[in-house]
């Protein structure tokens, strides 16, 4: 057994939340720098340059890359040999979100009730997903999810006999409908299989994957690449102003499926998809 105190957890989560929401992911920054060299459309080049200028300003001035610093989503993987001491784990994580949001001058974007809509003024509660794994460590992955893009996600419960083209058609429809509203170029997470909720969870988790890394299964890696090519032919372009860079990457996560269905969930990540993982 390894003891980990909630005081340590609050500190670590606070730092994680603060850093995640402020800056562009380094792999996406590298992607933009390469993309600008390859881009032929003059306007698209100019618009991509704005994204890089924005990322550099965020770093220099410690000001959030995007003002929508998001709904804080934490994936918490707890090793089964960990013993949490000094109080509630859940409360410690929420406290970390609160502290990180305050210290990082993040926006308070959370209202306590969907109908009454009073701002909690703390950026909490965040959404915490727990899983128990082997080992004596805790892994925290944070997604600071803005809502311009979150609003554009969709799920479809396809028939088990659906073809690869049916899956592609649905995903491309969602990407097209997200259009200029959800701040392209996009980073797309796709959940295939499981139940409706499982597919959505997988689609969200897929956003944690680095640019350029493909699904281990060959047929899914091929599907990722094909969707990427077709999405880039939609002429959405950076900021929706045209060009052939509509998506940064496509990530598929899959799970076993019931004989009667094929759930497909698409989570749209904007160019400001902000994620980070730490292990303690």
């Amino acid at each position: 057994m390894r003891n980990i105190s909630t005081t340590v957890i609050t500190e670590k989560v606070s730092d994680l939340v603060k850093v995640t929401a402020l800056y562009l992911r380094p792999d996406i920054m590298d992607f933009f720098k390469n993309a600008i060299i390859k881009e032929k459309d003059e306007n698209a080049k100019k618009n991509l340059l704005k994204l890089i200028e924005n990322a550099v300003t965020a770093q220099d001035k410690k000001v959030p890359y995007c003002q929508d610093t998001g709904f804080e989503i934490i994936f918490c993987e707890i090793g089964q040999e960990v013993h949490i001491t000094d109080g509630s784990l859940d409360a410690a994580i929420q406290e970390g979100i609160k502290k990180g949001s305050k210290d990082g001058f993040l926006r308070q974007s959370i209202v306590e009730d969907p109908i009454i809509r009073k701002n909690t003024a703390t950026n909490t509660p965040g959404i915490i997903n727990y899983s128990i794994v082997e080992g004596d460590k805790i892994k925290f992955s944070c997604i600071a999810k803005g809502f311009g893009c979150e609003n554009k996600g969709q799920v479809s419960m396809l028939n088990p006999t659906a073809s690869i083209n049916d899956i592609k058609d649905f995903v491309l429809k969602v990407i097209k409908e997200a259009g200029p509203n959800a701040c392209p170029p996009f980073f797309i997470g796709i959940g295939l299989g499981g139940t409706m909720d499982k597919a959505c969870e997988l689609a969200k988790k897929a956003l944690l994957e680095p640019v350029g890394k493909h699904n281990k299964k060959k047929h899914l890696a091929t599907l990722e690449k094909e969707i990427l090519t077709e999405a880039n032919n939609l002429n959405t372009g950076p900021l929706g102003l045209g060009g052939n860079l509509s998506c940064i990457d496509i990530k598929i996560k899959e799970y076993a499926c019931h004989i009667a269905g094929l759930p497909v969930a698409v989570n749209i990540g904007c160019h400001a998809v902000r994620t980070k993982t730490i292990v303690i």
Binding site: N47, L51, N54, V63, L239, C270
Partner: peptide, 13 residues
């Protein structure tokens, strides 16, 4: 007018 979505730091300046 459409401003540059997601460029909050740039607009800060």
């Amino acid at each position: 007018l459409s401003a540059f979505g997601g460029c909050g730091a740039l607009y800060h300046n």
